[in-house]
Design a protein around this nucleic acid. Structure first.
Length: 271
DNA sequence: CTCCGATCCTGATGGC
DNA sequence: TGCCATCAGGATCGGA
């Protein structure tokens, strides 16, 4: 579910609504694990500490308490719900963070593919240290992508979803960006020309910014911290559009699995 | 090392 | 209505 724009949407909304710095009063853990086992004592040790910043790295939301903090990955179906006062707890609500002034944040995740952990520093956490450049940051460019695609035989679509190549791109935005860059998802990465890498990176930056501006994509589960849906799914060019006419040329959009993931493209516009 | 299929888990959907 | 198969926005693991 949540790719970079969705996580960034949650972060921006929480930044807007939570008056930081804000003391964390209590952490309620209704389970001992998600994908990972919770370090319960270490998590509990954040009770009484003051939340300083909300950060994002790739698809990870970081509750930063100054140097150290709590890290959350939403997997496929994770959501953080912000309430003023403690609302009811529902099925699959696994974690609740209760802050001063009555703010509470509740993590719901039916499939439990998410992660929740402590970090001592962002650079050294095992889940974060190998992640590649932020696509919206200054250290990602066509040149960087071009270098990383050399000697790689995997389809470019697979490589774009590899978090070590570039951070935060998932299944939706990988298909969407390749349509915009007019590159077929099946293209072997090593066959890409330098200009094509430039084009992919340029379109990726534009795509992600547009998606963030529209509050991300609510294909199924994704909700803002307020429960609102995102709007970007209304503007998908190819994702989940199999059989429909391409908006540019009318050719039916095709669908095929790449490494087990649904992939969509226009056979006429992309080559 | 690289690549890809299987896997973790629950819920929604569609066919019979 | 029930049952079963399939599919879903992620990322790791192990075998080829």
């Amino acid at each position: 579910m949540p790719e970079l724009p969705e996580v960034e949407t949650i972060r921006l909304e929480l930044l807007e609504k939570l008056p930081l710095p804000l003391r964390l009063e209590k952490v309620l853990l209704r389970r001992k694990d998600l994908r990972n086992q919770f370090p319960i004592r270490q998590i509990k040790a954040f009770e009484g500490k003051v939340l300083q910043k909300l950060l994002r790295r790739s698809k990870y939301l970081l509750f930063d308490f100054g140097e150290c903090g709590l890290l959350s990955h939403l997997g496929m179906t994770g959501n953080w719900r912000l309430e003023k006062g403690e609302g009811e707890l529902y099925h699959h609500d696994h974690i609740r963070l209760i802050f001063e002034s009555g703010f509470s944040l509740t993590y719901q995740d039916p499939r439990r593919f998410g992660y929740f952990d402590v970090y001592k520093s962002i650079q050294t956490h095992s889940l974060l240290e190998k992640i590649g450049p932020e696509p919206l940051g200054g250290d990602f460019s066509g040149t960087v992508l071009w270098k990383k695609t050399r000697k790689r035989s995997a389809p470019i679509k697979n490589l774009l979803m590899n978090q070590q190549i570039v951070a935060g791109v998932g299944n939706i935005y990988a298909s969407e960006v390749l349509f915009r860059a007019r590159v077929k998802p099946s293209r072997r990465s090593s066959s890409l020309k330098r200009e094509e890498c430039d084009q992919i990176v340029e379109e990726l930056k534009k795509l992600l910014k547009e998606a963030i501006a529209l509050g991300g994509s609510s294909f199924d589960d994704f909700r803002h911290a307020s429960g609102e849906k995102g709007d970007f799914q209304k503007y998908f060019s190819v994702y989940n559009q199999a059989g429909k006419a391409c908006l540019k040329c009318g050719t039916p959009i095709r669908k095929k699995n790449f490494a087990g993931r649904s992939t969509f493209w226009c056979p006429h516009c992309q080559s």
